[in-house]
Simulated assay, not measured.
Amino acid sequence: MAQTTVAVEFKQVVKRFGPVVVLHPLDLRIGKGELVTLLGPSGCGKTTLLRLIAGLELPSEGTIRIDGRDVTGMSANQRDVSLVFQSYALFPHMTVLDNVCYGLTASGVKKPQAVEMARAKMELLGIADLGDRLSSQLSGGQQQRVAVARSLVLEPAVLMFDEPLSNLDAKLRRKVRQDIRDLQQSLNLTVVYVTHDQEEALAVSDRIVVMEKGRIAAMGAPHELYEAPATRFIADFIGDANLINGDLVQVGGQHFFRAAGVDVPVLPPKGMAEGPVALAIRPHRIRLGEVEGSVLPGQVLRQAYLGSRMESLVATPLGELLVFSDALQPVAGPGQQVGVHFAPADARVTSR
């Protein structure tokens, strides 16, 4: 069989549960050595897509290939994939070493060889000294590493994570997500990662696939989706954004966003005609200052000090805008007038 650079390929894959279509005709290619995150709200189809790759569900229509091999009708144990579950699914009565060895011995690998392979992966993940501990005696972060080691020792073509950090506290989530990313890059692993956490997706991904109602709404590199969202849904779902409905108009060769009788200068959006649009402005792209020369006049409604930044809610003719500022001494307090400043490049016009 010829070598392929594509690890996972979906061609017109559909999934139905009875009369309900949960995945509409879907095409997707994931390259070898790529970390792709499936991101979206609950019920969007991301977990169903992951289960289709894993063989825990079979498609109603279409073709699935892994490493160039048609696996459409194959069961989970016939596919060269491994899944780290949200619950970790460790055996509490087994030691860490036995948990990591389990998949190997179950597939017929002799115990001495399985132990050698397991210890190598445990060393890689920094849990070599935990081999004799019961998994029930471990912290959440340690259990997560054991679950990764158990999957990694099988050397799968595709390693999958289903909401792997949801059981960890905020500080540990940041550390473990970076550990996963470092491991993926150092071993050139193909990883499919499911999360509903936008920050997590931005932090670990080569590409993000944003799903909405059983369809792919957008896909691209994290910075592309964040900085240049194509639709209101993408702007709203990835990161914080001020979203305003209005119209795109052109006056004297200049493009403006018009709403509530106010014209805001914007860069001409590619392939978008005049008419109803949405405007997306990231809170950290807005600066508060003098009213004179500002894009919009505003009045500060309330403020919150968050240590690393100040958050302000400002009333403007376009509605209330959320503003993030690194300047912890605000230029105006609640009830005071203020100018709202942002560049045309920072006011992204999207479809509604």
Rank of each mutant, 00 (worst) to 15 (best):
L321H: 06
G246K: 01
L248V: 05
I281K: 02
R285G: 09
N188V: 13
R348Y: 08
D236P: 01
Y88W: 11
R287W: 01
P330N: 09
P317E: 11
R65H: 11
R215F: 01
M122E: 09
V249F: 00
A221P: 15
Q142C: 14
F85L: 06
Q299S: 13
L279I: 02
P164I: 01
D206N: 12
M219D: 03
L243R: 05
G141T: 01
A273F: 02
V153Y: 03
P25R: 10
V251Q: 07
P19R: 14
S351Q: 13
P265A: 02
A120Q: 11
E116T: 09
A327S: 15
G43N: 07
G239Y: 01
L225K: 12
G31S: 11
Q144F: 05
L301N: 11
A157C: 00
S294C: 11
R282I: 13
E61T: 14
V249C: 08
D80P: 05
E57N: 13
D182W: 00
Q299N: 12
S136H: 10
D240N: 13
I64N: 05
L38C: 00
R150P: 04
E9P: 14
V158R: 05
R285H: 15
Q78G: 06
E163N: 08
L23F: 02
A118V: 10
P41T: 03
A343L: 03
T48F: 04
K15L: 15
M1Q: 10
L104W: 03
R181L: 13
K15F: 00
M160F: 07
T72C: 02
K213T: 12
A120T: 13
E227K: 12
A89C: 02
V338D: 01
Y305N: 10
E224C: 12
Q250Y: 02
F256D: 11
P276K: 12
R258P: 07
G62C: 11
R258F: 08
L97C: 06
S308G: 15
T5S: 14
I286W: 00
Q78V: 11
L125T: 14
V20L: 11
E320W: 04
V22D: 00
K175W: 01
K121N: 09
G289N: 06
F85R: 10
L52F: 05
Y193V: 02
R282G: 05
S107D: 00
P41K: 08
V210D: 00
E274A: 10
F257D: 03
F233R: 09
A345Y: 00
S87R: 14
L168R: 12
R282A: 07
A280G: 08
D247C: 09
L165Q: 05
V176F: 10
S139F: 00
M94H: 03
I66T: 04
V331T: 15
D27A: 04
V191S: 09
L58Y: 11
L183K: 08
M272G: 10
I127S: 06
Q178H: 14
P92E: 06
L130I: 05
S166N: 06
R133T: 10
A114R: 12
P269C: 05
S82D: 04
K46I: 12
L49T: 14
D240I: 08
L39I: 02
R352W: 04
G33Q: 09
H223A: 03
V331P: 07
F324D: 09
Q137V: 06
Q299L: 13
Q184V: 14
A149S: 05
K270E: 15
D98T: 11
K46D: 04
S308D: 15
S186L: 07
